[in-house]
Design a binder for these strands. Structure first.
Lengths: 334, 334
DNA sequence: GAGGCGGATCGTAGCGCTATGATTTTCGGG
DNA sequence: CCCGAAAATCATAGCGCTACGATCCGCCTC
């Protein structure tokens, strides 16, 4: 009573193991008669291929290792889900790793990922330890970095420029006649990309005469509670504030609720712009103006790039960098 | 210029491959001197172990396959993240699969998962195809089913009874003096567990004299927009409604926003109870009464069970079933 | 009817590691 | 110092599959 192998299937189908192997790898290359009898044998024996043996022999596995800060974050969850859906169609497995915004952790995850001779590795952002970069380069495994553009990618990249997001938020607020701008940011040190949005925001605002802009920070992760606290602080530190941009919609929602409690009219006295277009943003009251990052598209495009690279035998495929852009959804809060 | 193997490391450390292998598998069994020289060799050669070769030889891999409906859903994202954190400490990799609430898809995912000779498989819910169950039973791989209790688990289970959630919501509303109860539910057919909550809700409510309860459904996924629509319909179909429970907090939030727009006082005229305690629930205005499922705990406990089972050589470990319970957070909306 | 060609099938040598039992080394006590 | 047990180390036979080149077979052409 031991494991059914490809040999058992071959014996039962009265064919050689090579043909059965071929049946899995290049179905078109096996005759219809042989295919049918192999299929019957598989069925009868309940054969489950051993992908580790296959991967070992082929010196590469059909695994894509995806490394994100955390799948608790709706942005990355969306991208991971989209990517998994696309990769799954090509029978590529997804191995998942969480860095929790820690570069050392990421390095460990990359090391482990490489132990599986993966077909591809996906990393979040462009900022990695020197060791991570070396490991990845030496491995010759296709790499896609997602959710950030603007630096030098290791290999391929799919994402957008976060500074431009901040810039767009500032422009929008100024277009609405706002001049005293504040950026509410949670966890700006760990979350480099949120930091870039903040920086883009103040840079753009301050380049215009008569407009002031400042950043108010909180070290905790972005939640509505933190948003409420940040708004209260903004009002304290800068009572004449009339335009608010937030590091994401959680913060914006908390800020809007706090305004409601304090009787600050939105958008009458204060305009609010978020980032993310989360599940509640369109529905809330007033509905939230926000900038929508295409998390889904990032996943799809990253998968597409990887699949193309894996398929192409010649390793000279170009090192694609895809700018997915993003869009501002103008709603009632501004 | 080819791959560095355990042999190369052994040669450089002037030891046998077995000892190097032992160094990875049972570090304590190797002398300090040998360990040091192996560590030096690994460093010098930049050795990356090949886990597929290891898995093949050992007939089992340090991979845990986690299969959830979708990681886009914050509940499962939380559990996956918690589980990954715990499993990662034991150097167990996570492979992720998304069923999108489709049993056939799940079956495929299980089949593929088994191809990796995983150390464990995690499934969501207790409802699976007959083939899935057979495959899993025959494989002798430890299985944990999460997020649902009440049926016959394949092996182990960690979760809670969803009918009890509905029951608790109904009891709470009745305790607050509400008698015309409505359950707002999105996607109740696909999401069996939401259906169980709805059923528990009406069963409990209807067992009390003078209390009415009905379910209002929508086939789309749970979003705040759907919640707003459902609330409007509830008011239309049952104008004297005074207590609302929702299949989750997205629905509840949408319902609350819609009440705000329609001038329906919460909790004055209408009490609202959600499910999930999502990021915005405590912060919204009025703050939302909701039932919090311990997604994090489910992940931790599932991981703990798996780790214990993997460690125990004797396969006679009991088939644990852990009821994590849940709790109602009474806030302003009820 | 021989020759040749292309598609289908086959035989087999590893891929890099682990498990097992064997062997060597170490060390304390008599 | 020698002995025995315990600790450390070693040698080797696969794990199940794929890749490669070899072989087979049917059919068309001249």
């Amino acid at each position: 009573m031991q494991r059914v192998t490809i040999m058992d299937v071959a014996a039962r189908a009265k064919l050689s193991p090579s043909t059965v192997s071929l049946y899995f790898r290049k179905p078109g290359a096996v005759s219809a008669a042989a295919s049918a009898s192999i299929a019957r044998a598989i069925e009868a024996l309940d054969y489950v291929p051993n992908l580790m043996a296959g991967g070992l022999a082929a010196a590469s596995s059909r695994v894509a290792s995806i490394i994100v800060p955390s799948v608790r974050n709706a942005f990355f969850a969306e991208t991971v889900a989209a990517m998994q859906a696309e990769l799954g169609k090509q029978r590529l497995q997804v191995m998942l790793g969480h860095t929790e915004y820690d570069e050392r952790e990421e390095e460990d995850l990359v090391r482990t990922a490489l132990s599986w001779a993966p077909a591809a590795i996906v990393l979040t952002g462009l900022s990695h330890s020197a060791v991570t970069r070396r490991l990845l380069r030496d491995s010759h495994v296709p790499v896609v970095e997602i959710w950030e553009l603007g630096g030098e990618p290791i290999d391929m990249a799919v994402g957008f420029h976060h500074a431009e997001v901040g810039s767009m938020a500032a422009s929008h607020l100024m277009q609405r006649g706002r001049k005293r701008l504040v950026f509410l940011g949670a966890r700006l040190q760990e979350d480099r990309r949120a930091g870039q949005r903040a920086q883009g925001f103040v840079d753009t605002a301050r380049s215009v005469p008569d407009v002031s802009a400042e950043i108010i920070r909180h070290p905790a992760p972005a939640t509505a509670e933190v948003g409420a606290m940040l708004l209260a602080e903004a009002l304290r530190r800068c009572p004449e504030v009339d335009g608010i941009a937030c590091s994401n919609d959680h913060i914006a929602l908390g800020a809007m609720f706090e305004c409601q409690r304090l009787g600050v009219a939105i958008p009458g006295r204060l305009s609010v712009v978020g980032f993310g277009d989360l599940s509640f943003s369109a529905a809330c009251n007033p509905s939230m103006t926000t900038i929508r990052p295409p998390g889904d598209l990032i996943g799809k495009e990253a998968a597409r790039l990887l699949i193309a690279r894996i398929a192409s035998t010649d390793a000279t495929t170009e090192r694609a960098v895809i700018d997915t852009r993003f869009s501002l959804l103008h709603r009632q809060s501004s």
